[in-house]
Computed example of a mutant assay.
Amino acid sequence: MKTVALSLLVASILVLGVQEVNAQTRYRTALGVGIDVGDGPTLGGPQIKHFFDGTNAGNAQVLFGNDVTVLGVDYSYNQTIRGTNGLNWYIGVGPQLAFVDNGRWWGGDDETYIAIRPAVGLEFKIPSAPLAFHFDWKPWWNLSNNTFFEPARFTLGFKFTL
């Protein structure tokens, strides 16, 4: 009888532990579309986000629009907001390359711009579906070709989680 009771106790603890781990798990990888809006051109394109562990993630995107193509990668630190189911905040930063082809907003030249983009935002993963959405403030700090800082830039993302 002791063996049966001990086995049930151990099984119960394992089940509760697995449920707790699953409740904290976001997703491992997500594929989607990113939209970059604000002062200047609106850009859009594919993106991928991958969690290396429970809080650290990498994001890569290719954005197109108004005679420019932007390649970017970002690191982000992610945390769950207590008392919510699927809502996280994050902060991050990453380098960006903008390839311009006679871009009107970019000064009309064929040039490559190097920038750093910090990000602060919210992401919501729908608990019952493989979908996630994000919104962040992501200013553009150009480091080359007439250095400038554009604070009024934001991104929206729609992702399918794997």
Rank of each mutant, 00 (worst) to 15 (best):
D110W: 06
N22G: 00
I126H: 00
F160M: 10
A132I: 05
L162P: 12
L8T: 06
G45L: 05
F148K: 13
R117E: 15
F160V: 15
T112L: 11
A23F: 03
Q96G: 10
V33D: 00
L43Y: 12
H134A: 11
S128A: 13
P95V: 09
F148D: 15
D101V: 04
G121L: 03
V70G: 02
L131Y: 08
L71F: 15
Q47C: 07
V120D: 02
L97Y: 12
L16P: 01
F51M: 06
P139A: 09
W140Y: 15
D39C: 03
L63R: 06
V100G: 04
I126S: 04
K138N: 14
V18C: 00
I35Q: 02
N66F: 05
H134D: 15
F52Q: 02
V37H: 00
M1Q: 05
F64L: 08
A11M: 10
P118C: 11
L131R: 00
A129Q: 11
V73L: 06
L16H: 07
L131E: 02
E111L: 14
T55G: 06
T55V: 09
G94N: 10
V33G: 08
G54I: 05
A23G: 06
F99L: 11
R26V: 01
R82E: 14
Q79C: 02
Q61I: 03
G72A: 09
L87Y: 08
E111P: 02
D109Q: 14
S128N: 12
V37K: 00
F158N: 04
P118T: 10
Q96H: 15
N142F: 08
K125H: 11
R28Q: 15
I114D: 07
E123D: 02
D53K: 01
F158G: 12
K159A: 14
L162V: 10
T42E: 04
L143I: 07
G45D: 08
D110T: 12
G38I: 00
P95H: 10
P118K: 10
G34K: 15
V70T: 15
T147L: 01
S7C: 09
N146R: 13
D74I: 04
D53T: 00
N59K: 12
G108N: 09
Y27W: 08
V4D: 14
P95G: 09
F158L: 15
G92H: 03
